[in-house]
Amino acid sequence: MRSFATIALTALSRIAPVLVVCAVAVLLGFLLINGLPAFSTQLFFGDTPVLAALTGRVPVFDGIWPACVGTVALVVLSCSISIPLGILSGICMNEFTPAFLKRPMVFATDLLAGIPSIVMGLFGFALILFLRSTLFPGAKTGLWLSAVCMAVLVLPYCINTTRTALEALPEELRLMGPSLGLTHEQSVFHILLPAAARSIMGGVILAIGRAAEDTAVILITGVVANAGLPRSILDKYEALPFKVYYIAAQFQNELELQQGFGTALTLLCLTTCLFLGAHRLRKTVERRWN
């Protein structure tokens, strides 16, 4: 019974994990070796005194501080739109929507989740063209546009994570509310939601990570290489992922290259922390229900 297929699959299951784990190890090792020496206050603030830079009194020209602030601003803005909206929509779709409406809504959410981020950026670009030709002839790309597009991009993740968290709750919990004489609303808000809160949090953290790392959306909606700290949401801004992309394409000397490695490592640390946070939350949830 030893056919060619079994031999091939055995070989594949031996080779593939080794190959992929090695590839990831080499990539990350290369990044660490080149990025760690660049990790210093010099990387973040350049030659500007740290305190002055932190308070924003002195502009930072040769550090990645403005890019960090830009990314944080973008994440905070986009998530403050998409997280509440996403969680509420998820609750509504799962608990308060009749079945005939639920199916098209689920389809729409899945569709939105699958749309490539560059198409979302293109949507923002179309929005600007539209605004220019109608209400605001002076409309320009900037932080607000990136935040809106990013919010639409991560919205489906927030909705789906809420829905799956509610669906995964054990049946006893669903019966508890009615058996205590609670209305459906009371049961959802006092029993189901608190029970699902941790897994919802986990998904939301992953959505934040997505908003922090996506480059294609901001690439065409207002990020630039040198903008300094964003002063208002109409301004252009800098962002960490764009900085990484820009340096890879346009670096001119060893120093900029060093900065590129440092920036890439900073971004990786950020997303890794978010990933680990989400992972921990998931783990505690699994332990609770199984």
Partner: peptide
Amino acid sequence: RLARPVLGVVQFMTSIPTVVYGFVAVFL
């Protein structure tokens, strides 16, 4: 005993930013 670590690496890969993959590949 290797199954969990390998799965962990794969799950971790989902969190690596695309632009970091691109950046490292440009120089490696």
